[in-house]
């Protein structure tokens, strides 16, 4: 059963001062299954974030169609929650009030809002930080609040745009682990963008690899382990997946670099 169906999607931008349009995505075909954790890797500049914006309904495709549960996506909505790399918390709201934001948009009554916000603060392990403002929290805590905010209004799909890229390695690992356990608990469909191969293999049930610009889906790899217990990264299969994706990406990264040199030079 597919949650998200993407068919032949392309997106071009008109760049100021340049005559020809800039193609970010071209002919994207992708199915995201209900309840799966899909990671999306690609060289920088390949249009990963553009693809996520399209699924979020923040922009419209130049060609092709996007569907959620068989209905065309035409605008943002609370059935999808987006988590950004830079947290995007409202600095004038406390952690609690930030989580309530989406619930206000959903017109949830005050009392229930408060309870649900508390519940999700507890879920991300920040029960004692309800009254803190974002600037009083560390990067990892801010991202937890952002994740809690997106979960609180109970979207069916969680769209995550390199959410852990700005965090230090240790915080990142513990958040990855927590995200997996949240995913197992809540059964959300998650689309997770990353440029880290390790992260993609560790988190994803499937890893979609994108080509360099204009971005296309190059290949989708199923990631299965006999057991996810213990140090998954030490599993020899982990190394195999990692190497396989690395090889696929290498050509694309080189192509992206050539393109960059061309456009700069």
């Amino acid at each position: 059963m597919n949650k998200i169906t993407i068919r032949g999607v392309g997106k071009t931008f008109q760049v100021r001062g340049e005559g020809r349009p800039f193609a970010a995505l071209e002919g994207i075909d992708l199915d995201v299954r209900a309840g799966e954790f899909l990671t999306l890797v690609g060289p920088s500049g390949c249009g990963k974030s553009t693809l996520l914006d399209l699924i979020a309904g923040l922009t419209t495709p130049t060609s092709g169609t996007l569907q959620l549960d068989g209905r065309a996506i035409n605008g943002p909505g609370l059935d999808r929650g987006v988590v950004f790399q830079q947290y995007a918390l409202f600095p004038w709201r406390t952690a609690q009030a930030n989580i309530e934001f989406g619930l206000e948009a959903k017109a949830v009554p005050g009392k229930e809002r408060e309870e649900r916000a508390r519940h999700f603060l507890d879920l991300v392990g920040l029960g004692g930080f309800a009254d803190r403002y974002p600037h009083e929290l560390s990067g990892g805590m801010r991202q937890r609040v952002a994740i809690a905010r997106s979960l609180a209004f109970d979207p069916e799909v969680l769209l995550m745009d390199e959410p852990f890229a700005a965090l230090d390695a240790q915080t990142r690992e513990s958040l990855q682990e927590e995200l997996l356990s949240i995913w197992e608990k809540t059964g959300k469909t998650i689309v997770f963008i990353t440029h880290g191969i390790d992260e993609a293999v560790y988190l994803g049930q499937r890893v979609a690899i994108m080509t360099s610009r204009p971005g296309r889906i190059k290949q989708i790899i199923d990631v299965t382990f006999d057991s996810r217990a213990g140090d998954l990264r030490a599993d020899p299969r982990f190394g195999e997946y990692r190497h396989h994706i690395w090889t696929l990406l290498r050509d694309e990264v080189a192509a992206a670099r050539r393109d960059e040199v061309l456009s700069v030079g």
């Binding site: 760049v15 974030s49 790399q85 700005a166």
Partner: peptide
Amino acid sequence: MADNKGTALA
């Protein structure tokens, strides 16, 4: 332009 988050050191 859509995806310039290559640096993890933001």
